[in-house]
Design a protein around this nucleic acid. Structure first.
Length: 296
DNA sequence: CCTTGAACCTGGGCGC
DNA sequence: TGCGCCCAGGTTCAAG
């Protein structure tokens, strides 16, 4: 599910509830997700107050007043939801488990501060997500965060910067853009969308959009712009809600209605004057959608 | 070091 | 209704 725009949308949904709230209790309903939970996760979080909910690439960063930072990755199917606890009847002790609750793995029970008490619940059917814990001053040393490349938000991802990243890459563009060590935050959807916008084939070797002197080609400049644009537009739209994915507040993102390539197999290419059709191929085991006519 | 492919999981959709 | 197969937003690890 979650690529950078979805994680940013989750961050924006969680921040108002999480920030300034004290974690009264942290419930772990199993010993691990993709990896075991840090052994001291509960003792370091219970009683701590959340000071900030941030994001790096596809990672949520939940900082506390004790100098700890929870590093949360949502894998393919992870999601957070908020449950305000109002009108809980003391006699109601039986609650039929619905389907989604069977994959509630982590529950942050927040203390009632200046409002109603709430729970923030991490749910993840496939359990590809994971949680790590680091000291705020040592995030650069974290095994998950330290290898990450450029954030595709803001202006860091310029044409020349992208050329520098791709100059010696002997992989198809698709694989290069998915490599989190180069650009951090893109996933299968937004790579397909960015390549479609830049009219570049996902099969093209990455280094071929860099000129011999190391300067970016026109297409490389366009690709950098396309990546920044598709990411910022998706964030504006509240991310994409595929399948059953919804935001922390239960609402749906709507960027999926703007897909030009991803999932559009057999549809006509939307580029002006192009009469091509969107095709689906498999690259390194994953679906790629692109126009075989205009994407070169 | 570089690149590719399998593995990790569950659930939904489809054809039979 | 059930079974088997394919597919899904990501990452790590082993092997070439």
């Amino acid at each position: 599910m979650p690529e950078l725009p979805e994680v940013e949308t989750v961050r924006r949904g969680l921040a108002p509830v999480f920030e300034q709230a004290t974690i009264e209790r942290l419930a772990l309903n199993r010993p691990d997700l993709r990896f075991p939970f840090p052994p001291d996760l509960q003792e370091r979080l219970e009683g701590a107050t959340v000071t900030h909910v941030g994001r790096r690439a596809k990672y949520l960063l939940i900082a506390t007043n004790r100098g700890d930072v929870v590093i949360s990755h949502l894998g393919m199917s992870g999601s957070y939801r908020i449950e305000a606890q109002v009108g809980v009847t003391p006699g109601t002790f039986f609650h039929e488990r619905n389907k989604s609750e069977t994959h509630d793995h982590v529950i942050f029970q927040l203390a009632a501060a200046n409002g109603t008490p709430a729970k923030i619940i991490y749910n993840d059917p496939r359990r590809f997500g994971f949680i790590d814990l680091a000291r705020a001053g040592a995030l650069e040393d974290n095994r998950f965060l330290s290898p990450l490349g450029l954030e595709p938000t803001g202006n860091a991802l310029s044409g020349p910067a992208l050329a520098g990243l791709l100059a010696h890459k002997n992989t198809p563009l698709k694989a290069a853009l998915l490599d989190q060590r180069l650009i951090a935050g893109l996933g299968n959807i937004y790579v397909c969308e960015a390549l479609w916008r830049a009219k570049l084939s996902p099969r093209r070797m990455a280094r071929t959009i860099v000129k011999a002197d190391g300067h970016p080609s026109k297409r490389c400049e366009l690709l950098a712009r396309s990546i920044r644009a598709v990411i910022s537009e998706a964030i504006e739209a509240g991310g994409s809600s595929l399948k059953d994915y919804v935001h922390a507040d239960g609402s749906m993102g709507y960027f999926q209605h703007s897909f030009s390539a991803y999932g559009q197999e057999g549809q006509p290419c939307g580029h002006e004057l192009c009469h091509g059709t969107i095709a689906r191929i498999v690259q390194s085991g994953r679906s790629t959608f692109f126009c075989t006519s205009c994407q070169r």
